[in-house]
């Protein structure tokens, strides 16, 4: 279980996230919507533990353990994995090198088998992310996560920049990562996915969505309904709605 409690996060001394609370139970996948700059990536980076994302208040509890102060690599070893929106090129380090790191301690499929699955066989011996297209980057990130077998998968826009032909493959990889085919009670892997287009909703069993706006979780609900509203009316409607709710609360408190 992932429990985020009253989380404030600052980047370079600028407060980005304010009082974020969310809980993901075993086998659940949650979806994050929100306009650019709302703080979605910041939330994922803070959960993964990147030092630039400083938790100034609140906590991140993973499977009962407070991991708020743990370094990135220890979180990875505890079973948190992330697919990056824009992963860096690391010259001289091949995709296979990284796959071997991810596969360390896991039985099952080999790097070559996973590469075949992700249609990346020819990329195993290339420098990681060097000269990869948008779709190749996304597939490579998911392939690494499949090797890593995390208990919590943080996916930052896994379908952005992917053409329609490849979106199904991306969907299949995410499916497998999040044990979609397993019955709910047997499903172990948790997911937190940032999406703009919502295409990915066709491939995952997500029952909870959030709209993040200005560093705050504005609303929580069924992700399919949220997406429909966002598609129809844009985030402006969400913003109005969120502002309206907070206005109503203020009004209520004055009245009482």
């Amino acid at each position: 279980m992932l429990e985020i409690k009253g989380l404030d996060v600052a980047v370079e001394k600028r407060q980005i996230l304010h009082d974020v609370n969310l809980t993901i139970r075993e086998g659940e996948t949650h979806v994050l919507f929100g306009p650019n700059g709302a703080g979605k990536t910041t939330l994922l980076m803070a959960i993964m533990g990147f030092p630039k994302y400083v938790v100034t208040r609140g906590s991140v509890v993973f499977n009962g353990q407070d991991i708020t102060g743990l370094p990135v690599d220890e979180r990875a070893r505890l079973g948190i994995g992330m697919s990056f929106q824009r992963p860096p090129v690391v010259r001289g380090v091949t995709t296979r090198d990284i796959m071997n790191v991810c596969l360390y301690g896991h039985d099952g499929e080999t790097a070559s088998q996973l590469a075949e699955k992700a249609n990346l066989t020819d990329f195993l011996d290339r420098d990681i992310n060097y000269g990869f297209s948008g779709g190749e980057l996304k597939r490579s990130e998911l392939m690494q996560l499949l090797a890593q077998r995390p208990n919590l998968a943080l996916l930052d826009e896994p379908e952005s920049g992917v053409d329609l032909v490849n979106i199904a493959l991306i969907g299949q990889l995410i499916n497998e990562l999040l044990d979609k085919e397993c019955p709910m009670r047997e499903r172990k892997c948790m997911g937190l996915i940032i999406t703009h287009s919502g295409h990915i909703l066709d491939y995952v069993n997500a029952r909870t969505g959030y709209v993040l706006y200005d560093g705050r979780i504005g609303c929580e609900g069924d992700p399919h309904e949220m997406l429909a509203t966002i598609k129809e009316k844009g985030y402006q409607e969400c913003i109005r709605c969120i502002a309206g709710i907070s206005y109503d609360f203020e009004e209520l408190s004055r009245q009482s």
């Binding site: 993964m48 990147f50 030092p51 370094p71 990135v72 690599d73 990875a76 070893r77 994995g81 992330m82 990056f84 992963p87 860096p88 090129v89 690391v90 380090v93 990284i98 790191v101 991810c102 360390y104 690494q144 890593q148």
Partner: peptide
């Protein structure tokens, strides 16, 4: 780059 590799363990 260091942090990217750390995120893989």
């Amino acid at each position: 780059e260091v942090e990217y590799l750390m995120a893989r363990g």
